[in-house]
């Protein structure tokens, strides 16, 4: 079986969809964790509240993985070495479909991390207002969800016939 350039492009799309939002989430979650350590050093009882803030920027990575899994299914990656052989335009479409979640997931996770890390200050000073800090951070989620939705629709819309 000869691999096609299209298939290589398809794999690239999958890699982008999984990797970039993952990187963003790691940075975001890491930042909140750093801030959280500062609070927990002084006040270990705040751990639970801060954990709630810390998971928020983690969702982009999950959206990325889900997009990647769907694409893998589409490309028959799970067939142990017999993926669908894509034409170059088909492979290019896979990359395009991956881009929304790849780009938006990457940046939104970082920015969400900043908002959530700032929210750690709220957890420290006014734990009763934690809900508001969570809401601020969740607002950023909107755009990750929109991008995820776009990626999903694009994946479903890719016409794949494969190389005969």
């Amino acid at each position: 079986m000869e691999l096609t350039v299209g298939t290589i492009l398809g794999f690239l799309g999958i890699a982008l969809a999984v990797a970039l939002p993952g990187v963003g989430s790691a940075i975001g979650v890491g930042l909140v964790g750093t801030a959280g350590s500062g609070v927990v050093t002084e006040d270990p009882d705040k751990f639970g509240q801060i954990l709630l803030l810390q998971v928020i920027p983690g969702t982009q990575g999950i959206y990325g993985l889900l997009s990647g899994l769907l694409l893998m299914g589409k490309l028959n990656v799970f067939s142990f070495g017999k993926p669908v052989l894509l034409t170059i335009p088909e492979g290019a479409l896979v990359v395009m479909a991956a881009l929304p979640i790849a780009i938006v997931g990457w940046f939104s996770a970082i920015h969400q991390g900043k908002v959530a890390a700032a929210g750690v200050g709220v957890a420290a000073k006014r734990p009763e207002e934690l809900g508001k800090a969570v809401t601020f951070a969740a607002m950023v989620e909107t755009y990750a969800v929109l991008a995820f939705l776009a990626t999903l629709l694009l994946i479903f819309g890719i016409p794949i016939k494969g190389v005969a």
Binding site: V32, A35, G38, V39, D43, A117, G121
Partner: peptide
């Protein structure tokens, strides 16, 4: 991030 968050508690 760390020092500011810790300062918030202080």
């Amino acid at each position: 991030a760390y020092s500011v968050a810790r300062t918030r508690v202080l």
